[in-house]
Design a binder for these strands. Structure first.
Length: 278
DNA sequence: ATGATTTGACCCCT
DNA sequence: AGGGGTCAAATCAT
């Protein structure tokens, strides 16, 4: 491809290190060693950071380089595909996020804290797993246009592609997750126009993904204190909030997020619930 | 009884 | 014509 042989080796090395650290992290969580796990998370963050820099040094993250996507066959960009009855999709912004979640029983893998109602599922050509379609529960009652598509990644059942369309216009819009998402959907400098035009044009689709890499952080749980245990809202760089319920205790959580290369993105570092060092 | 999920059919776009 | 997204009736769960 290019003359980045050295970088490739360095990247491979870093990623191998990340993989080893993730395994170690799982072990520490199994052993209920939160302090050790946290320390490992910091190391993970550094390693992921180095990986990103290496990748960028080779220009692998340029928005134009769409090839080489490990899974781009599975979920494609809305607006590009068919979208028959889904004319509502037209002109709606989207944020695409891949969420890696270890198999945690009794926990919806992509519980983002908002309530969704599944309205369809479809086998996607070339994809190993079907794509599920969700719309906001309050679509009928409050006319909320928000939808999301969730698809399990080929070859890695723990990795999900999540594509959000539209911002919540329902009561949930006040929810932090919806709030953050909506902000991401706002074209820069047009925040004021939001009231008259809540939905950004499709051209802004990748907006969130093109913003500078930002670290994850854990937000204080709503009503912090009382129900904090087992509730870990994770604020992603895209502003999406994932509630990781009961996951630490279960020891089965592998939190990770990544983006397709053309989203110019990041990995996360994961689990310091209080502060993120970058 | 009510709300959520499943699933086949339909529509629209490429 | 094929593929993706949505609709809506049937079914399931609470």
């Amino acid at each position: 491809m290019d003359g980045c042989g050295g970088e490739k080796r360095a990247l491979a090395s870093e990623l191998a290190q990340v993989q080893a650290m993730v395994r170690e992290l799982e072990a520490r969580m199994d052993q209920d060693l939160p302090a050790a796990a946290r320390e490992l998370c910091r190391e993970l963050a550094s390693s992921v950071d180095r990986s990103i820099r290496i990748a960028r040094a080779c220009g692998w993250d340029s928005p134009g380089s769409r090839n080489g996507s490990p899974r781009s066959d599975g979920a494609q960009h809305p607006g590009g595909g068919g979208g028959g009855g889904g004319n509502a999709q037209k002109g709606t912004p989207c944020v695409r996020t891949q969420v890696r979640v270890a198999a945690v029983q009794d926990m919806a893998p992509l519980d983002d804290g908002l309530s969704w109602r599944k309205y369809g599922q479809k086998d996607i050509l070339g994809a190993m797993y079907p794509r599920a379609y969700f719309r906001c529960t309050h679509r009928n009652s409050q006319g909320c246009p928000a939808t999301k598509h969730v698809q399990r990644a080929d070859g890695d059942p723990l990795l999900y592609d999540v594509v959000y369309h539209g911002a919540h216009a329902c009561a949930q819009a006040a929810h932090p997750a919806a709030e953050h998402l909506r902000r991401q959907l706002q074209p820069e400098g047009h925040a004021d126009a939001e009231q008259s035009s809540p939905l950004a044009p499709e051209a802004e689709c990748l907006q969130a993904g093109l913003e500078p890499v930002a670290p994850y952080s854990f937000a204080p749980a709503p009503g912090a204190g009382a129900d904090f245990v087992g509730y870990f809202p994770l604020l992603s760089p895209t502003g999406l909030e994932w509630q990781l319920r009961s996951s630490y205790a279960a020891g089965g959580l592998g939190v990770g997020m990544d983006y397709e290369p053309h989203f110019e993105k990041f990995y996360t570092n994961a689990t310091d619930p209080f502060q993120w060092e970058y």
